[in-house]
Design a protein around this nucleic acid. Structure first.
Lengths: 335, 335
DNA sequence: ATGAAAGCGCTAACAA
DNA sequence: TTGTTAGCGCTTTCAT
């Protein structure tokens, strides 16, 4: 037994005003009604338990009050915290959040973006695969603003919120140098997005600038534990008796390296220093704690929303802005 | 320069049919048009890059093609995997996912549910705080089906998908007994939801049924590391020289216990056995690996969607169904 | 097999 | 300060 839905007309009738006035009330345009009407409407809405239909509102006004979010891997802690930041901030603006997960698949990225546009999201926050440059430009051209979260594009044509990975990498190297490490190897997965490219470049830059050593980069295959061990062995063999440290490109890389190290019965920092990106919960627990770069993921989400709201409500045609948030180095016993 | 939006009318014109036919095409009612029309329409839509407006579709048809999800803590790995399962499954049905995060706050739970209903979600998947029993019933009465994910309600009046925590707890106890543990303490946070209540009851039951010992329950305060240490000390002191194990109620509890154990320089399994709910990534890494109960969170998400779709499209008034999914015991060196 | 026409519940010109 | 009216882009009867 589904009750007939209460519409703006029912409210208008009961309050003894026209539906226009109710609409004005709903949109906070109180200057167009008497104090008395305003109070009466409030009372009637409360009594009837009326809730406006956002589909109807959006259809007419072109404002769905929805933001679309596309993450590349909803399972990662980074995404969780990012989403939390986005959700909390959207709430303050009265916006809902439509969330999709591309699994780092460019085709899915396009499909999901289109289907979010079908829902008339007013803006998109995207943790992009980096393979849909032109497509995204087209989306913006069609009037849906985009903010890139965490992963920039090579060409800087979209609003972007990211973390200052370069600066913190300098700090990491400085720290490693202080602790007496002579060789530092970069361990990360294949470079298939801009973030990885920039982090690896930052590592190389820091090798020269801080430690005056040659960069040594090792590509990890997440799916192949043996391969990870092999890479670690290569690194060790290539550097003889020097004091060595591994610097990983992200939390997943850290995870695989730690697993490999455990299988190889190698301890850190005794046998090898270890540090990396992403301050995940467990990095504190493993082997007395791993030194990590902590990213302000929550704030990234926050800033994304603020930026998209500014674009929607203030200057739709402002030029692309880059927002960089500082990271923190958390030193633990692994280095 | 925003292009004028292409509507069903534009498509109809170009295809030389009425908009009714286009609508039929969009809804897959191909039996009402010639093969020829169908092909022509497909071509025109493709050419024009037409995308239907889901707000308009939903307004008229009362089918928003949106499912609302409310999780109690979007930051937890459980939620991530659950959301992944939900998202992947919804995609197959052509549904989008509106996601909100109650932070275990009953007021937020109500507010977010209302605002998702404002968006006319066709169904809700809720990881409930357990404090909004009547409110949720009202929602269902108003025609929005609800599936409870993971956390049941005391009264079984909603569709529920959960894991068979009772059965696996028996397995855990059996395992502990085999390994020679004589005393098992239950460590978890204050019982403020049904899941915690059921798990703790399962623990008590298993104490009697399997090990014939008295249950010993310790309440953890996540915010107070010292308190966690105190609880562990109490447990140890209460059981003298007997071989003891800690059984934790969830991943967060495990995390805090491990941290405390490390601070107290207590090793597992040498000083104390350790096992618990939730197979999080790092449980494999810490101290040689922690024995855990692995829950099929992804499948929980999956089943939630299947259930809600069945309700929406088949039998809206079927009686509440309980779906229980099996857990797996992953034995590692901590027990 | 196809179309005309009447809304879905709201917003926003325009009028008063 | 308030109301009248014409849509927003689609679906759905009811005709034909």
């Amino acid at each position: 037994m589904v009750k007939k839905t209460i519409t703006i007309v029912d409210v208008a009738e009961k309050a003894g005003v026209s539906k226009t006035t109710i609409s004005r009330y709903l949109n906070g345009k109180y200057e167009f009604m008497s104090q008395e009407s305003r109070e009466r409407i409030a009372k009637v809405i409360e009594e009837m338990g009326y809730r406006p239909n956002n589909l109807a509102r959006g259809l007419k006004s072109k404002r769905s009050r929805l933001i679309g979010v596309l993450v590349s891997d909803i399972g990662s802690p980074f995404s969780s915290i990012l989403l939390k930041g986005i959700g909390d901030c959207c709430e303050r603006y009265g916006y809902g959040v439509l969330i999709t997960n591309s699994n780092d698949n460019p085709k899915k990225e396009r499909d999901y973006i289109l289907s979010m546009i079908d829902q008339r999201v007013e803006g998109l926050i995207i943790n992009t695969t980096g393979q849909n440059d032109e497509f995204l430009q087209q989306v913006v051209k069609n009037g849906v603003p985009i903010v890139l979260a965490d992963r920039p594009m090579e060409e800087h044509i979209f609003d972007t919120v990211r973390t200052a990975d370069e600066a913190i990498t300098m700090d990491v190297m400085r720290h490693l140098k202080e602790r007496g490490f002579k060789k530092v190897g970069w361990f990360s997965q294949v470079v298939n997005n801009e973030t990885r490219k920039l982090r690896s470049a930052a590592y190389r830059e820091a090798c020269h600038a801080i430690m005056s050593i040659d960069p040594q980069e090792y590509v990890l295959d997440d799916k192949d534990p043996k391969q990870v061990e092999d890479q670690i062995r290569s690194f060790i063999e290539a550097n003889g008796k020097e004091k060595k440290a591994i610097y990983t490109g992200n939390g997943v890389a850290t995870l695989h390296v730690v697993k490999a190290l455990q299988r190889m019965k190698l301890r850190f920092p005794q046998d090898l220093g270890l540090c990396g990106f992403n301050n995940w919960d467990w990095t504190e627990l493993v082997g007395g704690g791993i030194t990590v770069v902590s990213q302000p993921s929550y704030r990234v989400g926050h800033e994304c929303v603020k930026r998209i709201m500014a674009r929607i409500h203030r200057n739709r045609h402002a030029k692309a802005k880059l927002i960089e948030l500082e990271c923190k180095l958390i030193i633990r016993s692994s280095t």
